[in-house]
Design a protein around this nucleic acid. Structure first.
Lengths: 131, 131
DNA sequence: AGAGGAGTTGACGTTGACGTAAACGTGACG
DNA sequence: CGTCACGTTTACGTCAACGTCAACTCCTCT
């Protein structure tokens, strides 16, 4: 099963990222492709991680935050202390996220108010123009 | 009414920003304080603009976007077109924010799942340790 | 053998929104 | 008169997440 690993090009096509991005992620220890000589070969584990990375980015998380989350998903640590530690990290992240959501909700509500005001102002213009 | 203008310090206190920020905004042509010699004096117009700037930032607009919106308001004459334009931009932002919130909610749910998993695993450890 | 294409490693550039430091001016107070 | 506190300008630093070269190496096809 050679298709168990993918070249950098195949990865780029599959995930719509650039080679630079994949090398960058590797340098940040988000991905761990194996080497065929100097060339990178991405395993199915790398693909799973990249999928999570890209999703995390869409959520607006930093790569460093994502790296921490990946360590949770990656919970290979069969050790209780390690699990406990990553669990705490994840809980903190959840709190952050819920604060973010609260702020976002507030901003959305405010913006909606503004839109209502704008709508009213536009309606006034149109009434004035109708005379 | 000397309170018609404010010093940089008064502005910082009133709006909870740093002097650097106000100077930066001036350099970006978002604010136009008048000068008393070399010192800046912020008018009520500056205060109105700053209020809008900070609100815009909470909504996630870039300073450049904010500048353009402010400039639209500034051009003299009938403001209906400008208002219409601003309204459209704001509506697009709102859509972006609501999509962002939906994704954030999804991520929160997923992370909660992971946490439940971790909790269960920890509980298993503790049961094993209780023997 | 030569050309082409994909891959590699540095290293520097970019954008946004400021922070920080240096070096100096100025007015009020004791 | 000294010395603060506060102000100024200029300019360089920062952080994230890559983009954009340059200067190779290696494989493949003809």
């Amino acid at each position: 099963m050679t298709s168990d690993v993918m070249t950098i090009r195949e990865m780029c096509d599959a995930f719509d990222v650039t080679p630079r991005t994949l090398r960058f992620y590797e340098s940040k220890e988000l991905l761990f492709p194996i080497r065929d000589g100097t060339r990178r070969l991405f395993t199915r584990r790398d693909r799973a991680r990249l999928k999570l990375i890209l999703r995390g980015k869409r959520f607006g998380f930093s790569l460093e935050e994502i790296r921490q989350l990946l360590d949770l998903y990656d919970r290979d640590g069969s050790q209780e202390l390690q699990l406990e530690r990553t669990y705490q990290v994840a809980r903190q992240r959840l709190e952050q996220m819920e604060r973010q959501r609260a702020e976002l909700d507030e901003a959305i509500a405010e913006l909606k108010d503004q839109l209502a005001w704008g709508e009213e102002a536009l309606a006034a213009f149109r009434r004035a123009a109708a005379e």
